[in-house]
């Protein structure tokens, strides 16, 4: 039947166009990344060459010099030629990991527990409370910059580990509560009730039955909180300029002085990217909504 053949031909063209469009979009997004990675393997002089060299080994010789310097020590600068200074990057990276990590863990745990309560229990004024929680996300964060700064000064939380971590927890909690509440709402409460009938207390029932269901959602939520904390710049730059600074302000500081070492900066960025990419890749399955692993089909 030539009707069917025509239909199939039309769908083939459609499919080709589709993949061409996908390729173009991917190129648009991935090219800057590629540039950055390639730059991190170049000597400073090579970075600004025109036309730009994009393919390692074919167009230029890659070097690990930037990575080594960024992680250990680097030339102190033009004026102090011959001396070296410690790279501040490893400390900043460690701070980023610890602060963002702790904030994510705390926010997800607290938020999940709160979300469960909102989902299952009848709380007077629940609707208002939820709205209140959500409304904190409606404010542009920069509006709270000055009050927070003043608050941190009076508490003596400036330049501490716990201060900035708590701030990130407070920023991430609303998101966690909303995501996890929606998720718990979709899990029938009959599971816990069946477990309670079977002989467990509510706490045990939740731990044994509900939490395993919730872990994928918690991981997916964690990714978003982690990314938020990891990339946060404005507040941490203001509140933790000293020993407990994280990578974003550190990176920014590098740019400020005279000639920029693009190669080293690219290396710094690549290293900074790595943990997030790794974590996201590890939990990628759980990021797909609708992946209800092991759920009962009806």
């Amino acid at each position: 039947m030539n009707r069917t053949r025509r239909r199939r031909a039309r769908s083939l063209i459609g499919r080709i166009l589709f993949w061409v469009a996908v390729a173009m979009i991917l190129l648009f997004f991935l090219f800057p990344l590629h540039w950055m990675v390639v730059t991190s393997f170049k000597r400073t002089a090579e970075v600004t060459l025109l036309p730009p060299t994009l393919i390692p080994w074919v167009q230029f010789n890659p070097t690990l010099k930037n990575y080594v310097e960024v992680l250990t020590k680097m030339p102190a600068g033009l004026l102090s030629a011959g001396t070296y200074k410690q790279s501040g990057f490893p400390q900043a990276l460690l701070n980023s990991i610890l602060i963002s990590g702790a904030a994510t863990v705390i926010a997800v745990l607290l938020g999940t527990v709160a979300a469960y309560a909102f989902s299952r229990f009848r709380i007077p004024g629940k609707g208002d409370l939820l709205f209140f929680i959500l409304s904190t996300r409606m404010l542009p964060p920069v509006v709270t910059l000055v009050p927070v700064f003043v608050m941190f000064i009076s508490f003596g939380w400036r330049n501490t580990f716990h201060g900035i971590t708590l701030l990130y927890v407070a920023a991430g909690l609303p998101f966690v509560v909303w995501m996890m509440k929606g998720f718990f709402d979709e899990i029938p409460r009959e599971y816990e009730e069946a477990a309670m009938i079977d002989g467990y207390s509510r706490l045990e029932a939740v731990w044994k039955i509900v939490i395993p269901e919730a872990i994928p959602a918690m991981l997916a939520t964690a990714v978003f909180v982690l990314i938020m904390a990891w990339n946060e710049f404005l507040f941490v730059q203001l509140l933790n300029p000293g020993k407990f600074t994280t990578v974003p302000p550190f990176l920014y500081a590098i740019i400020g002085y005279g000639r920029v070492e693009w190669g080293r900066m690219a290396a710094t960025s690549v290293i900074f990217l790595a943990p997030i990419v790794l974590f996201t890749w590890l939990v990628r399955k759980h990021l797909l909504r609708g992946v209800t692993f092991g759920a009962v089909r009806r």
Partner: peptide
Amino acid sequence: VFQDYALYPR
């Protein structure tokens, strides 16, 4: 016995 059985899915 629940209407939709409530079998532990995992």
